[in-house]
Nucleic acid binder design. Structure first.
Length: 941
RNA sequence: GCGGGGGUGCCCGAGCUUGGUCAAAGGGGUCGGGCUUAGGACCCGAUGGCGUAGGCCUGCGUGGGUUCAAGUCCCAUCCCCCGCACCA
């Protein structure tokens, strides 16, 4: 009673230890030998690794192993990203005793109970999970050179980041400016997605504010639809709320008290001490600054005092709320339409309200959305706008008959330029709450530091280079191009979190995606720094200038940094040898940020010959068809998966069953079935050793040998294009099938398998499978006396194979399937076969097809010489179109004796079809059935 | 809205780049058979419709087109998913 994994576990442990002992995965420069440098995006260890983390790394590892077997000196290192806030937040949660999180750590990830309290320390947490990653990734068989590992908060790494930023600054790519962020008003800190309750990303949007003048200060109306200003018939305020007068840039505004509490975080506002209930403002007369019209302030309960200014305008022609409430309050409704939409008549809001008959605010909200969408997408400003503005037609003439989106921009610009209004920012998906429980607001941070990815020169160079890079898969390239286009200034400093202090203002920390764009360069020297205990203080700008750019005199640089000259030269040599990076791997979620920054920063910092060669992006991992998430509690920790299914199986599921671009679905059934196939192959390999027949001669031997050679060619092509799914299919699933076919075929002729061909099969299998399933491949490799480790074994060459035997097998299979399909209708125990030997007809058909001719041409061609039933010709034509090109070519140049082939394989066919007897004869006719080339006439009795 | 991806048989999911090998791979489920005391696991077969002969009909979101031939190419249209930043 052994379970699948027990039988294999000794293999896994054995080879992991052997590889470790022999330092198989360590990489040293070998001047003169071609190199391949591959990295994957380093993980952020705020939990133990799960199977999703494995995909990118296994993809990179497969490539690394493949390149090795192609003779490259391969470097595959990894490090850890500690920068940022989520780890801190999680550690806080542990400290607070967050039940849900502790439950997940304890029961999902199986973290020992005594460890959990210690995770309240963020650094302990990061290091603990880093350890888990290392252990898990080792077990997964990743060929990583662990000596070079580091974390993004190592002081030595920070020294390099500082160098990088000074390079950026030197090119004026670091700029300052204002920047709005989500903000907790109690803690006075920025609030990102990870800091909110239920992980909501705060969306910041912009309201246009229009100043309606009154005798006693301004009513700042906030709107998302400034183009409807012409249709305002009154203002709305909430009569139950407090309104206060505040001073903004020298003028007085009436806004809700709740608005004041929010807006004061984004603009200078002073309380004047004047406050009134909303109800007391009702009835005041205000002037629309754009049209000059006078309108009244009216009260309504739907006005949200917490959104923007708490003062809104009423446009009953285009806002269902406004139309509905005016009617409900018994006011005069005089809608002024300013936008026309074909299907909505004169007054769009009226039509929508009358059609939909909304009964509550929720339904009004729906109606609003619908009208908004219709007007935005299909609406045009009316041409009679001019008459609404008291003679001032400067603005209306610009927008009359224009589509709504364009008019909106024009009106907004007009209002801002003429000083008729301003803008305020608001959390569009509010309310969003900070983890502390307070509702967050928009805060405008002054003097924010940015990396200016919008810089035209920089962008141009980056885009040019992108087109020269290799991008896998093809689909990703378009997305990169789009991202490069819209990329603009990016805030690169934060007020809290782990990371490198910002060099020019040390109260800031360099933001997490900005400190990890050229870190692959650090791998080249990380182990040298570690082994020689070089300190951050010795890693000054001049050192990095020399190591990375070759600038400066090594003698001076080594003195300046108190580093032994030999060491300094070694760092330089190692960098020169490994750089540029050959392949960068990550999930496709990083296209829009990390991977793009990575290209931009290389372009900015390094000379062109050191820019990265290629990018490989992969899809995600689903578990049983669903995205893994804490809330679904369906996360599969890597170590548990490895323990349950074994590392080779996990690897095959992660990279072998879905193409790069799409998500791969990890299922228990799939893993089990792959595991049992691995087991079967291993079993076959062991049994294969016992074969005794030495002489290599039979048709079956030749077939297996040929199909192996053909598979080698196919898999080689697939590996080169990173079609790992295809490669796994051929090198694993198909190879297994071929082996079974061979055994059955050989046994049907009463023979044993041949030693020589079995050896060829397993040697090739071991190497082709080794990038994907290194453990079992290693075992099979050694079983068959392979020298050294399979990772260093040379990838098989493409060799000529025998098309004839492949065609023979194809032909036999097609006869078998014909017999079977007849059996579905007519049972029989004896099959009678006759054959056509009309090679000439067959060749005519192939020729006309090769020439690109259709069926008609073929018939015309044939009719010239002989009279043959058109039906039969059609069948032949179908048979030939289905033939592989190499078979067609073969048949043009060689004889193919169907009778002899079937005669020699009668036993195999009988076995496959269950026939008792198969009679073959040479004539073409068989009681009405006509044989055509490659399709014998078959009669069952 | 803009950008990217996608809609395939009961379900999941390949294929479409290079039209014919596609009634459409591979799973799952279901049905039948084997094994077993039984169940599970495993193995074999079937799984669009029709048909006592390897065939015919219908079919790959919807509508049209190109072609001897279209899941595959072209046009139009509907629907779904992801990204749009300062967050790892």
């Amino acid at each position: 009673m052994t379970n699948d994994i027990d039988e294999f576990s000794s293999i896994y442990g054995k080879w992991e230890a052997e590889w470790e002992k022999n330092r198989v995965h360590n990489a040293e420069p070998e001047p003169g030998r071609k190199k391949f440098f591959v990295t994957a995006a380093f993980p952020y260890p705020n939990s133990p690794p799960h199977i999703g983390h494995g995909r990118t790394y296994v993809t990179a590892d497969v490539l690394a192993r493949y390149k090795r077997s192609r003779g490259y000196n391969v470097l595959f290192p990894m490090g850890f990203h500690f920068t940022g806030t989520p780890i801190i937040t999680m550690a806080d949660d542990i400290a607070k005793g967050d039940k849900e999180l502790i439950d997940i750590f304890e029961n999902l990830y199986k973290i020992p109970k005594d460890v959990i309290p210690k995770l309240a320390d963020p650094l302990y947490m990061a290091n603990y999970f880093k350890g888990e990653f290392e252990r898990g990734f080792r077990k997964l068989g990743l060929s990583i050179d662990w000596r070079r590992e580091f974390t993004s908060i190592n002081p030595e790494f920070s020294a390099m980041v500082v160098w990088q930023f000074s390079k950026l600054k030197g090119k004026n790519f670091i700029v300052t400016g204002e920047h709005p962020v989500g903000w907790c008003p109690i803690h006075n800190t920025p609030v990102g997605m990870h800091d909110t309750k239920s992980d909501v990303e705060p969306e910041i949007g912009e309201f246009t504010v229009i100043f309606f003048q009154s005798e006693d200060g301004v009513f700042p109306v906030a709107t998302l639809r400034p183009e409807t200003i012409f249709g305002a018939t009154n203002l709305w305020i909430n009569p139950k709320e407090d309104y206060i007068k505040v001073e903004v840039d020298g003028s007085n505004w009436w806004i809700s008290r709740k608005a004041f509490q929010r807006l004061s975080f984004q603009m200078n506002m002073k309380e004047t001490g004047v406050a009134l209930k909303g109800a007391e403002l009702v009835g005041r007369e205000v002037m629309n600054p754009v049209t000059g019209n006078k309108v009244k302030v009216i009260g309504a309960s739907f006005v949200d005092p917490k959104t923007a200014t708490g003062v809104v305008m009423s446009v009953p022609a285009h806002a269902p709320f406004d139309y509905y409430y005016l009617l409900k309050e018994g006011k005069n409704v005089n809608p002024i339409p300013v936008i026309e939409v074909n299907s909505l008549g004169e007054i769009p809001a009226k039509k929508i309200v009358e059609d939909k008959k909304p009964k509550n605010d929720e339904q009004l909200e729906e109606a609003t959305k619908e009208l908004y969408r219709l007007e935005f997408n299909t609406g045009k400003m009316r041409k009679d706008l001019g008459k609404l503005v008291n003679g001032n037609t400067e603005l209306t003439s610009m927008i009359a008959e224009q589509p709504v989106p364009k008019a909106r921009d024009v009106v907004k610009k007009f209002i801002l330029e003429k000083g008729l209004g301003t803008k305020v920012l608001e959390i569009m998906n509010r309310p969003v709450y900070c983890r502390c429980g307070n509702e967050i607001v928009v805060h405008v941070v002054k003097d924010q530091w940015f990396i200016d990815y919008g810089n035209a020169e920089w962008k141009k160079t980056a885009k040019e280079y992108l087109s020269a890079m290799q991008i896998f898969p093809q689909e990703a390239r378009k997305e990169f191009e789009a991202v490069f286009d819209w990329l603009d200034r990016r805030a690169c400093a934060r007020t809290r979190g782990l990371g490198t202090p910002f060099p020019w203002d040390r109260k800031w920390i360099i933001e997490s995606l900005s400190d990890s764009t050229i870190y692959m360069a650090f791998y080249c020297v990380a182990h040298i720094i570690k082994e020689n205990e070089i300190r951050a203080s010795q890693l000054s700008q001049s050192l990095w200038d020399y190591v990375f750019l070759g600038i400066g005199d090594p003698v001076k640089v080594s003195e300046e940094n108190k580093i032994d000259r030999q060491l300094l030269e070694r760092m330089r040599d190692e960098f020169v040898y490994w750089y540029p990076l050959d392949s960068r791997h990550s999930g496709k979620d990083l296209i829009a940020n990390h991977l793009s920054f990575f290209v931009f920063n290389h372009v900015a910092v390094f000379p062109r010959e050191l820019w990265p060669k290629s990018i490989v992006v992969n899809g995600f991992i689903l578990y049983e068809g669903k995205k893994m998430s804490k809330s679904l509690r369906n996360i599969v920790p890597l170590e548990q998966a490895i323990k349950k299914y074994g590392p080779d199986t996990v690897r095959l599921v992660l990279v072998g069953v879905a193409d790069l671009w799409s998500d791969a679905n990890f299922t228990d059934d799939l893993a089990k079935s792959i595991n049992s196939k691995l087991k079967k192959i291993y079993q076959s390999a062991k049994e294969g050793l016992d074969t005794n027949r030495k002489r290599y001669c039979t048709l079956q031997d030749k077939w297996l040998s040929s199909i192996v050679k053909k598979t080698v060619k196919k898999v080689s092509d697939e590996m080169e294009t990173l079609d790992f799914r295809g490669a796994v299919n051929d090198a694993f699933f198909m190879m297994e099938r071929y082996y079974d076919e061979y055994l059955e075929w050989v046994r049907s002729v009463g023979q044993e398998p041949n030693q020589e061909v079995i050896r060829e099969f397993f040697e090739n299998l071991a190497i082709m499978l080794s990038p994907f399933a290194p453990y079992i491949s290693e075992e099979i490799w050694h079983l068959y006396g392979g020298q050294g480790f399979v990772i260093n074994a040379k990838w098989p060459e493409n060799k000529e194979y025998d098309v004839n035997v492949l065609l023979i097998k194809y032909y036999i299979d097609s006869v078998i399937s014909d017999i079977q399909s007849i059996m579905e209708i007519k049972k029989g125990k004896t099959a009678k076969l006759t054959f056509s030997d009309n090679m000439k007809l067959l060749r005519t058909c192939i020729n006309s097809l090769e020439k690109g001719g259709g069926f008609k041409e073929f018939v015309r061609e044939v009719v010239k010489e002989e009279r043959i039933d058109v039906k039969a010709l059609q069948r032949l034509y179908d048979v030939v179109t289905q033939l592989e090109p190499e078979f067609r070519k073969f048949l043009l140049e060689n004889e193919f004796n169907e009778y002899n082939i079937i005669r020699d394989n009668l036993e195999f066919i009988k076995r496959r079809t269950g026939m008792d007897k198969i009679e073959i004869s040479e004539g073409t006719n068989l009681t009405g059935k006509v044989a055509i080339p490659l399709r014998p006439a078959i009669l069952l009795e």
